[in-house]
Amino acid sequence: MKRWLGVYTVGFFAFLHLPLLTLAVFSFNSSKFTRWEHFSFEWYAAIFKDPQILEGTWNSVIIAFWATILSTVIGTLCAYGLWKRGSRVLTSSLYLSLVTPEIVTGISLLALFQWAFRWLHWQLGLYTVVLAHVAFSIAYVVIVVSARLRTVSPALEEAAMDLGANEWQAFWYVTLPALAPGIVAAALLALTVSFDDYVITSMVAGVDSETLPMVIYAMARRGASPVINAISALITLIFGALILISERVREA
């Protein structure tokens, strides 16, 4: 019984990981087709020659940078506030934001921006994408940081305050340092969901703010291409490494 389960689980992991591995292997294939010819870096070189991909990557990096910082700060403060005393309204809206289908989030944000721009003569751009990304990332950050907060004893802050610390000092010197690993994990999650998002982004991005997922998506809809294989392999490698590093940080 146990052996069968083991054999099954090997197959299960193969199903999870083989698609990405074969994708990575074929990104080194010199042929455009799925028959193996010989090893080559040409598709990786092609990435760096494609202005659309480079611009998309740059936009994605800028958006992910701001979205991560903003959502991590806002989410951490929020998790701490809710840890002190819950708020039904805020908690429910965070949960709801988490389960709202992406396409619904996308069109409703688009509706909001278009409605607001009737008065404000602004335009969709990178900053609308950042605003949207922060909106859907806060809930992720709150959940991850809250999980960490559950391991922190409120007695520590009480002790600090008995010894003369004010509320702010108790937060800054006592609780916040204990949250550091959770905050790092939350930031990483926010970074991943921001960098990866296509559906919401494509709705609220301006004409000059195409992101990397939007470029990949447009290429993928025209059919598979070895260049996408190469970008995909790079994305998987970079994020895989980031996750493993953060796991080490968390365990340390």
């Binding site: 994708l23 990866d196 990949i216 993928a220 996408i228 998987t236």
Partner: peptide
């Protein structure tokens, strides 16, 4: 890792 990449 990226949902888009996994679908692709």
């Amino acid at each position: 890792t990226s949902f888009l990449v996994r679908t692709y």
